[in-house]
Design a protein around this nucleic acid. Structure first.
Lengths: 209, 209
DNA sequence: AAGATGATCTTTACGGCGTCCAGATTCAGA
DNA sequence: TCTGAATCTGGACGCCGTAAAGATCATCTT
């Protein structure tokens, strides 16, 4: 009875404002774009005063951190699913890459927040390397699975980094530019993405040749 | 005598405010970071009123466009030099990639402005494809030079896109995260960059195998 | 040479932003 | 039931981007 929040008459305090604020932020991000994502607008969307969020987040950045975290969680799920649907290692790698890029294409503003949040910090968020089902770890583990040549730790990290960078570069381009002509010429987005990844020789090639 | 602007007594109007504003913006970007880059701060830095810039730029975005354009020019020069220093095609490609990433590392805020400016627009700036010495065209032409297999137009564009994305992804990571441990383990930044590019199989491999 | 014209710059103002602070409201535990 | 802590509101401050109106100055016309 505490979630869904009754909704007819405004409750005593709010119920779960923290949750409501994150949702409001994601809604604004989707519908109005990143420039519309002000702390005041989020409060407005959630139906509270402009200062209310400060009882749940230290500042605007901390709200965005929370939004970004949910973005990573969503991405991890999508990549887990994509990987699970494939049997061969090569297909797994391709599927991971394609899923990553498609996530960025479908959620460009969210994708940007995910990286902007860690921009000021010294590194990407910890959970990327800590959680077993994180996007990073999935790529790394699949590369281990591929393991044509027995990689040492450094080589593995290097390969994962390379794959990550390649996917990130393509994701940014696809999310914010159109390669419509190329997509059309190549017979659809899927073919285009696979084509680029093949040239990159890392998703779907995995240095097995 | 019109540049350097006399400097002792403030001139009648200003001399060349447009130039001064762009320089002030780049100075702020370097010294104070991207968050400090407000139109008012730029005007302050240039010693004029907050509304003065509006006689030279339609809005803040147009100033940033000008800053971004100079960023692309600088990048083009660096890549031209890097390419000219090499003889073999393979070395040229590697040098192009390394120069690109190092530019982003040395000018992270500027690099970001270059992409942010075109983020709202439908495509990357026109001069990237129009100017012969643009970064894009240099990569493309070097790939043509490599031309082991005779590429058709689509294949060439795909290969250039792949290389571009790969470099961009690595550039963003290097510009805003540290791979210090990897750099150290691999014996320096240069080796690290080459290592990643080799895994990407596009700069320095060029599908010649 | 004198005056008009238009470009450039300043002043002032408006609304929106992130954030802080003082008070009001409500919850939870003694 | 009383008290203290958590939550929310209203108002304020200084910043931002931008617009409009007035001042200043270069240049062009006559």
């Amino acid at each position: 009875m505490r979630e869904a929040a009754a909704a007819d008459n405004r409750p005593y305090h709010h119920g779960d404002l923290r949750r409501a604020l994150i949702d409001a932020a994601r809604r604004l991000l989707e519908n109005e774009g990143p420039t519309a994502l002000s702390l005041r607008a989020v409060a407005r969307e959630a139906g509270v005063s402009p200062a209310a969020p400060y009882h749940h987040f230290k500042d605007k950045g901390e709200l965005l951190d929370a939004v970004a975290h949910e973005g990573w969680d969503l991405l991890n799920e999508l990549m887990t699913d994509a990987r699970a649907k494939q049997t061969s290692v090569r297909d797994k790698l391709t599927a991971l890459g394609v899923a990553y890029v498609k996530f960025a294409r479908d959620n460009p503003a969210l994708y940007r927040v995910m990286y902007d949040c860690s921009r000021d910090k010294e590194n990407l968020p910890d959970h990327l390397h800590a959680d077993n089902d994180s996007a990073y770890c999935q790529v790394r583990d699949t590369l281990v699975e591929a393991g044509a040549s027995p990689m040492d730790e450094t080589e593995l990290e290097l390969a994962t980094t390379a794959a990550w960078c390649a996917a990130h570069g393509l994701a940014e381009m696809v999310a914010f530019k159109q390669f419509d002509h190329l997509k059309v010429t190549m017979g659809g987005e899927e073919a285009f993405l696979r084509g680029v990844f093949e040239h990159m020789g890392i998703f779907g090639h995995a240095r097995t040749d």
